[in-house]
Nucleic acid binder design. Structure first.
Lengths: 233, 233
DNA sequence: TTAAAAATATGCTAAATAGCATAAAAAGTT
DNA sequence: AACTTTTTATGCTATTTAGCATATTTTTAA
């Protein structure tokens, strides 16, 4: 796949769009400490245990964040889309990364130097509060996810994942095909089940006319039914 | 149980100890909008779906926070101890409470008016950053918990809960008895299992000499073994 | 104190899910 | 194109866990 040149100014403006409370001098400071790079499909952006060097932003592409689980089984804890940050939790908690970030497709990833960014936060309460709000919202999602992943049955969990992927990445132009192409294994790791069970359950959904499968293409035929399966657990 | 009079000044000072970056005028403002009350064992402090009216602090006692799960099954998502905040996630996310808070024993609970507190945050970046750090840390715990609750087997999950309770509430003077007395049902809801299985597994641990049971008293006899069970999953 | 209710203990059965084996298909590599 | 590797599909079995029934114990209430 061709590696287009990165228009760093454009990318920087996009990233800044995520900060509603940035003063001009802060923006300037960030700009001077802003870097950008391509990552290829499958490439690891950082690993669980690595120390954050900056605030990382996904500008183009898709990234999965996963934790290595108990029996070597991975658990996908987040799916990132552009334009959005990844790895900020570790940065703000002043910890090492608690998950591994891997590109699901060719992507563009940027970084703002850690000290520079934390310095800006230390002097901009509105911005910090804005970020606090997002992190608090995400904590809500995470707690909720703990409950659904532990209490829903396999069909409910997989249906929830499909609904989640729809809400996160949306549809292709046909308004039915999910705009994300995961392996059955990734789908399983997102839904807390074995790959066999993800495959089996997808086939069931397909048999029931809820979805249509074509390799990794997933077309949602009956959203209402899918959401019902998700809600009933 | 006798309801001792609350020494509100003392309690307020205790709560302030959680804010390392509070300026005198901010403290004064908080003090004027600070209230305090007793809650009895079993009482609900707030319910999932309620709107936060302030920043709630547990000053004395113990509180469980739980979400109602899929089949009416509860999932305990946090165990609070004094002195510490509860319900702050919803406050900062500007959402309704995502869990119910219930006193596990007679407790003292305080509250700082929502608008007053958020106003202080808006003007104190250091304080906000401090709180952001705690919330980010907790998000890490939560994500980690998702993985262990979904991937560990029953024995591992229960052992992890016991280790967690030890780390949270500590021991009685004998340095062995957990300083928290939960019903088997609560222990089950903390560990994502049915009550029957919590009872069974506790009995097994007791038979194996890892713990000693006497009603709700749990004495940890072999910490190493318990942690090994937790780690192996 | 006695009665009622709730919590705990234990056994049995059913359901859900994991684990493994094998085969077929798809994707990547030389 | 031929080969290797990976992914997907499907069936079967074993394990884990839930669900229920019943008995016992403990707690609460009258």
């Amino acid at each position: 796949m061709a590696q287009h040149h990165i228009d760093i100014e454009n990318v920087f403006e996009g990233v800044c769009g995520l900060f509603p409370n940035l003063k001009p001098d802060e923006k300037e400071k960030m700009h001077r400490n802003f870097s950008c790079m391509h990552v290829r499909k499958g490439e690891i952006i950082y690993r669980e245990g690595d120390k954050p060097a900056g605030l990382v932003c996904l500008s183009r592409g898709k990234v999965k964040l996963y934790k290595e689980g108990v029996g070597g089984r991975d658990q996908i804890v987040r799916m990132a889309k552009p334009i959005g940050f990844i790895g900020y939790r570790a940065l703000f908690a002043d910890e090492n990364y608690s998950a591994t970030a891997q590109a699901l497709e060719d992507s563009v990833v940027c970084s703002i130097d850690k000290d520079v960014f934390m310095d800006i936060l230390k002097n901009n309460a509105e911005l910090t509060l804005h970020i606090l709000k997002s992190v608090a919202t995400e904590l809500g999602f995470s707690t909720n996810r703990t409950v659904t992943l532990t209490q829903k049955h396999i069909r409910g969990r997989l249906a929830e994942s499909l609904v989640f992927l729809r809400d996160t990445y949306g549809f292709e132009d046909d308004a039915k095909t999910l705009k994300v192409y995961l392996s059955r294994e990734d789908l399983a790791n997102l839904s807390n089940m074995t790959t066999s069970n993800a495959i089996r359950t997808l086939s069931s959904f397909s048999d029931e006319g809820v979805i249509e499968l074509d390799g990794r293409r997933i077309k949602i035929l009956d959203q209402y039914k899918l959401e019902r399966i998700s809600d009933l657990g």
